[in-house]
């Protein structure tokens, strides 16, 4: 299980990486933490001719704070979130999510940008980013563009990143200090990808609530009816019925067992958030 040959280039700056990407003939890919890409290379499932390594680009490991948001460079590792080594504006939600990604050895290398670029629907960061209304800043030959995460992700393993673009950073709006969150992940084993993943956010003072269900066969879905019910303080059983109806509407392909699973995780996340 060894990769096919590829060329390797360690980019010295974002511009340098873009130039290398634009100039490459054949398939080029950028290397961030490599925790998903390199397994694919080893399995020869990802035909890459040129690998452009981003690790020396200090700008991609930066964090910038503004009153409204925190901007995380694409190479910020899961472990940095887990350890609280980077600023947090989510009342600990990101820290919690990060600490449930795979295993420590993977979290030490794996990055936020890399995870979002892969757009695995079962991954923790994708559903979390949707819940947090994060946006992704892409840099390409024509400069930067910033996409809401829901626009950035087109489908499972499919994003808006153009061939000559890289993720510069992920911008996460600061949540109100009074907001509470719930995070419910159903995984077959500790560290495995989720079979169902729900995130709930509620701030009664601001009359805001958000419910997101992920780790099904498509990209995460925002559940609006469920969120309204959560905000109105609908009791658990009735919330479950509302959520189930919304899932039936938005995810009609679910089997009865899958519908039960996702309904449960949404309701659990919601209950956690308001407990």
């Amino acid at each position: 299980m060894k990769p096919a040959p590829f060329s390797y280039y360690r980019a010295t700056s974002i511009d340098d990486a873009i130039t290398a990407l634009s100039g490459a003939d054949g398939m080029a890919a950028v290397l961030a933490g490599g925790q998903s890409l390199v397994p694919m290379l080893n399995l020869r499932l990802s035909p890459v001719d040129h690998l452009i390594d981003l690790r020396s680009i200090a700008a991609l490991s930066r964090q910038e704070e503004t009153p409204e948001a925190i901007c995380y460079g694409a190479l910020t590792t899961h472990a940095a979130f887990e350890d609280g080594a980077v600023p947090d504006g989510t009342n600990g939600l990101m820290r919690y999510a990060a600490s449930h990604i795979a295993y420590r050895a993977v979290r030490n290398r794996g990055t936020l940008g890399g995870a979002l670029a892969l757009a695995d629907p079962a991954a923790d960061w994708l559903t979390t980013a949707v819940a947090l209304d994060a946006s992704v800043t892409l840099t390409g030959p024509d400069g930067q563009r910033c996409l809401a995460i829901t626009d950035f992700v087109v489908g499972p393993y499919y994003t808006q990143i153009a061939e000559d673009e890289i993720i510069d950073s992920v911008v996460v709006p600061r949540r109100s200090a009074a907001e509470r969150w719930g995070y419910y992940k159903v995984a077959p084993k500790v560290g495995e990808y989720a079979k169902s993943l729900a995130v709930a956010l509620i701030d009664p003072a601001k009359a805001s609530a958000r419910l997101v269900i992920g780790a099904w066969s498509d990209v995460p879905l925002v559940l609006k009816a469920g969120a309204s019910a959560l905000l109105e303080g609908v009791k658990q059983h009735d919330l479950a019925v509302i959520v189930q109806n919304e899932l039936d509407l938005k995810m009609p392909s679910l089997s009865p067992a899958e519908r039960r699973l996702h309904t449960s995780s949404v309701v659990r996340a919601a209950e956690q958030a308001r407990s």
Binding site: V186, K195, H237, P256, A257, E258, R260, L261
Partner: peptide, 17 residues
């Protein structure tokens, strides 16, 4: 698997929800 448990529950006589 968890899904098989849920399938058994769905085809069982009594619904827990």
């Amino acid at each position: 698997t968890p899904l098989r448990v849920l399938e058994a529950i769905e085809s069982g006589a009594v619904s827990p929800l």
